[in-house]
């Protein structure tokens, strides 16, 4: 296999004692080290350390307000948009400290895509929603853009539904279609990581099932981190699961282990539905 040669990640991050092992033994892509986050004086994340494996689906679960979305937004620095946010500790992606002074946030976000809780297509056509992302990346040739748009829509399992109305407004799509469009938009620029913040929470079961199939399909190419409040969903689609409670990481392990044989009492209580 040529994989080790093509994967400079392994060289950038020599396995040292400080970086925690990931479940499944996959190399870590995102490493969180003693991360704390404050909104003004209130601490939202409490001294979190763990690593997220490459090309697996990692699910963040926990009751609302536990900080899972906040942590997710640390990975593409969307928290920068909020006033009074202060961070301690570090987040490294592929070995790079993304909060280092000379990191370009714009560049980071092009590598770390995000799908939001509520679908947020631009008030443009379906085609232009995706083409916008491509143009940001510097794509100029029309044929090339059209190709990638089609390819992304295929990947997002949306092509058959919209191929006849690519130039109709994206706002005319159903909620589930809009969300898949947002996914298509996010993956069009081929990010390394795809962050998903409860992507199916506003959708009906049928649309949710489609999104879940899509996620399973996408993990062959992307490292996916998904926040969900739906434990069945986490069990169905994720390889690793992290459980958060009150801003702390309680447990992080292979999904099968978290749901069948958790190490911590709190985790067990939560996954069996005793609180949350």
């Amino acid at each position: 296999m040529v994989a080790p040669l093509l994967s400079p990640l392994a060289r950038v991050t020599p396995p040292d004692a400080a970086s925690p092992a990931t479940p499944h033994g996959h190399p870590p892509l995102i490493e969180v080290d003693r991360l704390s986050l404050y909104y003004g004086a209130a601490r939202a994340l409490h001294d979190i350390s763990f690593a997220i494996p490459e090309r697996l689906v990692t699910a963040f679960i926990g009751p609302s307000g536990c900080g899972k979305s906040t942590l997710l937004r640390c990975f593409n620095r969307m928290n920068d948009l909020i006033d009074n946010v202060r961070l301690e500790g570090s987040v490294r992606i592929g070995g790079e400290d993304i909060y280092a002074r000379d990191i370009d946030v714009i560049e980071l976000r092009k590598r770390v895509g995000m799908v939001f809780q509520r679908s947020n297509p631009f008030p443009k056509t379906i085609f232009d929603n995706i083409a916008y992302a491509l143009r940001l990346q510097g794509f100029r040739r029309k044929s090339e853009i059209a190709d990638i748009v089609e390819q992304s829509l295929h990947q997002a399992a949306l092509w058959d539904e919209v191929k006849d109305r690519l130039h109709a407004s994206a706002l005319g799509l159903s909620g589930g279609q809009q969300q898949r469009l947002c996914i298509a938009r996010a993956i069009a620029i081929k990010p390394d990581i795809l962050l998903m913040d409860e992507p199916a929470s506003a959708l009906d079961p049928l649309a949710t099932a489609k999104i879940e199939d899509l996620i399973l399909d996408l993990k062959r190419q992307f490292t996916i981190v998904i926040v969900t409040h739906n434990m069945q969903q986490a069990a169905r689609i994720s390889d690793a699961t992290a459980f958060f409670y009150l801003g702390e990481l309680i447990e992080h392990d292979a999904t099968g282990k978290i749901f069948t044989n958790p190490a911590r009492k709190q985790t067990e209580d939560y996954v069996t539905g005793r609180f949350g």
Partner: peptide, 22 residues
């Protein structure tokens, strides 16, 4: 857990964030 099989396609080369995007 099929995901952990060693036959996963090779990872894309890591892209760095430091590229100047001024």
């Amino acid at each position: 857990m099929t995901a952990s099989t060693p036959t996963a396609p090779p990872a894309p080369p890591a892209r760095r964030f430091r590229a100047s995007t001024f």
